[in-house]
Design a protein around this nucleic acid. Structure first.
Lengths: 211, 211, 211, 211
DNA sequence: AATGAATGAGCTTTCATTCAT
DNA sequence: TATGAATGAAAGCTCATTCAT
């Protein structure tokens, strides 16, 4: 009985937290980072303003937790892919790229949130740390896989780090354009461009995608 | 006499405008878009708060003009390159990439400003328009040049638009990482990665850069 | 059985009340009256926030009861001294002064609490009433004793009320300086100064204290 | 012309500052320290809330300046008395006591402000410093004068510091009771009690005051 | 009796904007 | 043209109080 009560209480608390974070994302995406207010977030979440400060201590706290939330969501996706048995490094890479352009990751709300934080990253160390951590995680894995392909395929003059950085930056740039110019860079095209980057670099392993 | 006065006046006015815009850029880069205030900008510029409103009508006006300023600066660079007689489409492309990673374009202050505006672009139509206009300008030219290379070089299954978008997005992604992770993505590496993108796609025209 | 339960309940209740009051005093002394919050008090007491309102109805209730508590504590000390058979009015006076500078009364926490309430007294009638009641109680008794000494000792031109007020105000002033400047006004010095006030006024009855 | 303008501007600014400080004192006296709000102060001063923060940076700034203001006012009175040629140490002491119970110092508003700050002094170092500085200034001077009287009058067993502390604490205690119990401790009685303290201690120099 | 999540009124503070000079 | 004192709306945040459990 007491157990149930406590669990309900804890659940309710966690649910409110998540609701506030989701509303924060929505507001960032719709209004832009600099127009987000505690009032608009809590109104969207349907709770009082006091509650947000109760749970997150301050607006900064809420934003930090929101960044952590989207970070964790992305990273857990990467981990899931890494933990699955992959047939080959090439498949692993393609799987990861597929995830990067899936609707779970490359949807407009999430992308808007990412770029909003990136826009503030230079001046806010906390944001910068989380953003660059995510960046490292992604690049490091990609680099390992690229190195394997290079070793297997005897590609002369290739630098795994350069190619990995190229892929990751390409993906980020595609995300940006999906956000800014969605009519030009659709999800499908973005995915194709990224795959073709790999195919062009590793023709022995990966074949080009066509329209 | 009156002429001189007016010219001096006009000059002084233009100089104040530019000074305010440069201060705005500095503030955006140092404090982040959402912490920029009229007070901090005008203090940095060494003018009174009223003056900024006199010249730019409002904060929004100042930000719009700042975006226009960095836009014009970039675009005029592109125009200059386009207007020069280029030996070949390949040279033209390489020249443009060189410009994109020159210290005039790819310095941290300017990049921070760009991403600050991009971060707000989704929710502010004015910003989005300028950002996407710049994007089109860049992509369209690159696409034309890529098409010429494809036609010349008989590259099978290549889509000029895809490759152009790939280059532009790669460049933007490299800019982002130069901002977020400068110790990993130096200007030199970023330039090399972009050149190698071209070299890998157009091996008959462009040769790989090495460390 | 029911009896025991009720008694235990009543005891527990009384104990919680006292704990909350002691925490209130601690918080007033440490943070200052205007920074005391229900949260800090209940946290210090180790009980939930709701409980304080349950027992004291409101924050104002808690503060009123706290003032009453320190008031009662002081007054009961006075009563105890008055009820003891005293050898003489002079001894009675000295006994009372001794009590005023004992560690039970003149400790920093208690003094801080007193002055915190005095600071608010002007604007809060409830506080003013309690404070001035305590004042009267003290002065009235001291005045009676002084009158006895005057009558006994044939001190010409003495006004018992003036001298009584002088003693009481001197004591309060010494308390204040013990709080503000404890390194200058130690408990011992404060006691000595008060005794010497009496000795100087009533040289036939009371002899000076020396260092 | 420019001079005049600037002076007017500076004057206006200084005048607003003083007006805000006077309103703060009024509010502290009427509502008590913990009920003072920026809204009530600025409303009383007839200016906007923003202005108080413009001039004083924050509420804490306003309170600090208010304390400094009453401090300076009191201290400048002491200095004025000290700088006047006094006939004798006794006259000097009496002059100072007279000032302490003049309507400029011992009026209810000023006393209420003093005790409000004293009430917070324990927990706020800034307040404590100012309050204890004032205290030292007063006691040190009184102690010197008492020492002169002791030396002149051959009072055996007197400790100048004890007597000085006694006088200062008596004065503070009288102030407190003038605030809490004005019907019992009038300004006249308070003054008389203080003078009699001196007369009783220094009968060769100072004669008792009578009703 | 006791909890603590939740509220919302009220506080301090910030800041774009105005306007007399 | 240029100033900066002044405004006031709106923001973030605090905290006494309530209430379902």
């Amino acid at each position: 009985m007491t157990q149930t009560k406590q669990r309900n209480g804890a659940d309710a608390k966690a649910e409110k937290r998540e609701r506030l974070i989701r509303s924060t994302m929505k507001c960032i995406a719709n209004q832009g980072m600099s127009s987000v207010t505690m009032a608009s977030v809590t109104q969207d979440a349907g709770v009082s303003m006091g509650l947000a400060n109760l749970h997150f201590k301050s607006k900064e706290g809420l934003l930090n937790e929101t960044l952590a939330y989207v970070h964790d969501q992305y990273v857990s996706g990467l981990e899931r892919i890494a933990s699955k048995q992959q047939n080959s490094p090439a498949d692993h890479l393609l799987e990861q790229v597929k995830w990067d352009f899936s609707s779970k990751v490359a949807n407009r709300e999430l992308l808007a949130v990412w770029f909003a934080f990136w826009g503030e990253a230079k001046s806010r160390p906390t944001y910068r740390q989380v953003c660059s951590e995510r960046d490292s995680l992604m690049t490091d894995r990609v680099q390992q896989l690229c190195q394997q392909l290079i070793d297997e395929g005897d590609y002369p003059g290739y630098d795994a780090e350069d190619i990995a950085i190229g892929l990751c930056c390409l993906i980020e740039g595609l995300w940006l354009d999906m956000l800014i110019a969605p009519q030009k860079v659709s999800r499908e095209r973005a995915h194709r461009v990224a795959v073709n980057y790999l195919a062009t670099n590793f023709p022995k392993h990966i074949s080009r995608a066509s329209k």
